[in-house]
Amino acid sequence: MTAKERRIQELKRSVAEIDAPEAFALQQKGAALIDVREADEIARSSPQDALRLGRGFLELRIEESVPDFERTVVVMCAGGVRSLFAAEGLKQLGYRNVRSLRGGFNAWKNSGLPVETPRNLTAKDRERYSRHLLIPEVGEKGQLKLLESKVLFVGAGGLGSPAALYLAAAGVGTIGIIDNDVVDRSNLQRQVLHTDDRVGTSKVESARKTINGINPAVKVIGYEARLDESNADEIFADFDVIVDGSDNFATRYTVNDASVRLNKPNVHGSIFRFEGQVSVFWPGYGKHRGPCYRCLYSEAPPPELAPS
């Protein structure tokens, strides 16, 4: 018997092994399932909602993910051997309910249990978003969230321009823009998405070029249309957040009403002379229900009162 075989025999005596269906049942009841395979193995497929900590840094990182030493921890590798070593390491660290998945990920798959292909940041993403990755409030998890997010800009004008530029730079994965206007030279004093050589061309297309110039990975969905009650719900449905940069009351009410109906956060901004206003209208947020735009201004003022 080799030293390796001897050690595995010892571990099989000291570490509790369980089968895949039992591991799944424990996970459903709140146990942490930890995939300790190498990154390239995990990248292909991994059990749904597993913690992918890797064998190398397991002992150094687990406490952040599983602070409760009483919580049941199921360790999993490809075939059930590496997880024995990992499980022993966790026991020594102080985890009291550690199991090793017998047969590893192969057994998990063969039992027909749920798997997913985890999305990871590419090397280029890591470089581009390195400053985000350094902040714990964003980190890899947050950056992946941003990459999977969809934000709709109503208007590619003075408010939408800077907001869309920065959100594209921040890595918001999908940016929708609805605007039916063309670039006018008088827009360029503040609508920083557009350029002098695009005067007379579609604002949506101009925005697409600028956004993809900054961040080619951003998917830009353009709607060369005017937002109204007939199309708002359909367009809004696909997005996580609506950024209102519209320039007229009718559109603001349309944005508000559709956002409330679909329970989407409506990030509102407006400008008058030297004054700006910002709020988030999101009555569906939290326990203390916040207002919507109509709670503030139930009806649009007559057009003659609207400054221009």
Partner: peptide, 23 residues
């Protein structure tokens, strides 16, 4: 209208959006 003003307001909207997306 002062052209830099919508820059300030648009950026405040952008910050709120990122906060919402990240929770």
């Amino acid at each position: 209208m002062l052209g830099v003003l919508p820059g300030v307001v648009g950026m405040l909207e952008a910050v709120e959006t990122v906060k919402i997306l990240l929770g």
